[in-house]
Write a protein that binds this DNA or RNA. Sequence first.
DNA 1: TACTTATGTCACCAATAGGTGATAAACACT
DNA 2: AGTGTTTATCACCTATTGGTGACATAAGTA
Lengths: 209, 209
Amino acid sequence: MERKIVDGAVRNKEKSKEKFLAAVGEIVKTKGFSALKVNEIAAVAGLDKKLIYNYFGGTTQLIDEYIKSQDFWSNVKNEELNVDINDGGRGLSKAMLLSQFDYIFENKELQKILLWGLLEDRVSLKKLAVDREESGDALFKNISDPHFGEHSVRYRAIMALLVSGIYYLDIFASTNEITFCGLDLKSQEGRAAIEEALAFIIDKAYDSV
Amino acid sequence: MERKIVDGAVRNKEKSKEKFLAAVGEIVKTKGFSALKVNEIAAVAGLDKKLIYNYFGGTTQLIDEYIKSQDFWSNVKNEELNVDINDGGRGLSKAMLLSQFDYIFENKELQKILLWGLLEDRVSLKKLAVDREESGDALFKNISDPHFGEHSVRYRAIMALLVSGIYYLDIFASTNEITFCGLDLKSQEGRAAIEEALAFIIDKAYDSV
DNA sequence: TACTTATGTCACCAATAGGTGATAAACACT
DNA sequence: AGTGTTTATCACCTATTGGTGACATAAGTA
């Protein structure tokens, strides 16, 4: 017996699934995780909630699939190509940090996901963090560890502070109108100050070897 | 007409209010904000939910009062006293960062509050952030700004990155079992590495002036 | 066109959650 | 002990939320 794959303009399973996934992203971006209810998702998607159970099994699985569907760190990998690494990764480190500082500031969805990873321990969220760890580990092992030798752990610690600082400051800037250490993280000057500090610290780390 | 203030062993308004406030803290610490429902709070407090409406007006006001009741940054102020500031604040900066790194790691309640400030924009949460800004601003204006002169903004940016990095890493360590930049932030070695990096960066910042 | 099936809607139920009036119990005061 | 007031409980209501079976309709198939 041949399988039927409905592909009409009005009824289309694949398109409906995508509508649900898009609805999850929309809600996360605008209303936050707390609004991720079946009824809400169905309303935003413009479809019946029953389909969420039919197609995904429930909101939990739908949300997990949404998280999996996002390739948040793809931008990081792209950035790798434009810089030479004859300086032990100095330029690459700066480029990566500055790129992330800007990218995360613009990507509100990613901000929410990062926060989510600090709130719940979903497997899909953990997988995201592990993925990031793995792609980062390739950089450390191949480039910075050989260059820093006995100080490689210190460099990793510095990077941990800077990366996590970037995360927090970008998220803080999006949700708070007030300053952080007297810096307006939404203004051009405030962000330029952070960028200069990032470059400064990386330079000092590399100069010390 | 004289006012009656009931102060019995079984019925006691003030003690009941404190029970509700404690229940909020307990729930935040263990189950997270999402569990902060009227029925849940009343159950944990061991009292009827009606009292929440009678005494506070509702959960919103109760939660606000809980946040106000916590003086999370008191430890920061205490730490100020043990260090001399003849070095332009170098020792003070290190002591403060290390102290916060440790204090926030232990204080799960504060971790949740910090996260909360990134999720919602409650007035009471904003007030906490403003308070922290103000107490920090005193340090910057009186100690580091004069010392760093034209580079004072850079120093503030460095501190912003380090402080926010400390926040994120401590929270990350509590909710994730995995490493960050290859460092196990729960282990003695991982935390020592971060501490060394903090001291290193502060030293480089001060050495450069 | 007629039939079958995938796709989607709707009505409905149960569980949870927020909220309140009536009432009981503890306390202060005489 | 008696009385009025504060403190606390309970029953009950409504609204929201998660979840599902019965039914309707668009789309493929012949």
